[in-house]
Each structure stands twice: as structure tokens, then as C-alpha cells.
Amino acid sequence: MLVDLLPTLLAASLAAFLLALLSAVAGFGGGALLMSVFTALFGLRVAVPMLP
């Protein structure tokens, strides 16, 4: 089961890192951009509680 989730978790981790880097450089909220990535990867029911 964990092996099945590994690619999804790696994609989410990479997206979080890249969007945090973009947010630090550009100065706008990476959380808003990350919401769309997490929604695509995990679905809306899981993505909304992840990001306050």
C-alpha cells in the first residue's frame, strides 16, 4: 500500500518545495498555488484540511 502512494507523495513533496521556492523569490502565496496541486493529487476532500 505504501509503495502505491510513494509516487504521489514524492510528487507532492517536490511540488511543495518548488512552490515554496517560487513563493520566496516572487513574493506571492505558494499556498494558493499548492492547493491546486494537492487537489489534483489527493482530491478536494483531502486537500482542503491540509492547507489552513
Rank of each mutant, 00 (worst) to 15 (best):
M1L: 10
M1I: 02
L2E: 15
L2S: 12
D4T: 09
D4C: 09
D4R: 14
D4G: 10
D4P: 08
L6Y: 06
L6R: 09
P7Y: 02
P7I: 10
T8L: 10
T8A: 12
T8K: 14
L9G: 07
L9M: 10
L10M: 14
L10F: 11
A11Q: 13
A12C: 12
A12Q: 06
A12M: 05
S13R: 05
S13A: 12
S13C: 04
S13K: 08
S13P: 02
S13N: 09
S13T: 13
L14K: 07
A15S: 15
A15K: 13
A15C: 14
A15I: 12
A15N: 11
A16N: 06
A16P: 05
A16K: 03
F17M: 13
L18G: 06
L18R: 14
L18A: 12
L19W: 02
L19I: 11
L19Y: 07
A20L: 14
A20Y: 15
L21T: 01
L21D: 01
L21F: 09
L21Q: 05
L22C: 11
L22R: 13
S23N: 14
S23W: 14
A24S: 15
A24R: 15
A24L: 15
A24H: 15
A24Y: 13
A24M: 12
V25D: 08
V25A: 13
A26V: 15
G27C: 01
G27K: 00
G27L: 00
G27S: 03
F28D: 08
F28Q: 07
F28M: 06
G29Y: 03
G29C: 12
G29I: 08
G30T: 13
G30M: 15
G31Q: 06
G31I: 02
A32R: 14
A32N: 13
A32Q: 14
L33I: 11
L34S: 00
M35G: 12
M35I: 05
S36K: 09
V37L: 03
F38G: 00
F38Y: 09
F38C: 01
T39S: 09
A40W: 03
A40K: 01
A40D: 03
A40R: 02
A40F: 01
L41N: 09
G43E: 00
G43F: 00
G43Y: 00
G43P: 01
L44A: 09
R45Q: 04
R45W: 07
R45T: 12
V46G: 04
V46Q: 13
A47T: 10
V48L: 07
V48A: 11
V48D: 02
V48Q: 06
V48K: 06
P49Q: 04
P49V: 00
M50K: 07
M50P: 07
L51M: 06
L51K: 05
L51D: 01
P52E: 08
P52H: 05
P52T: 11
P52D: 06
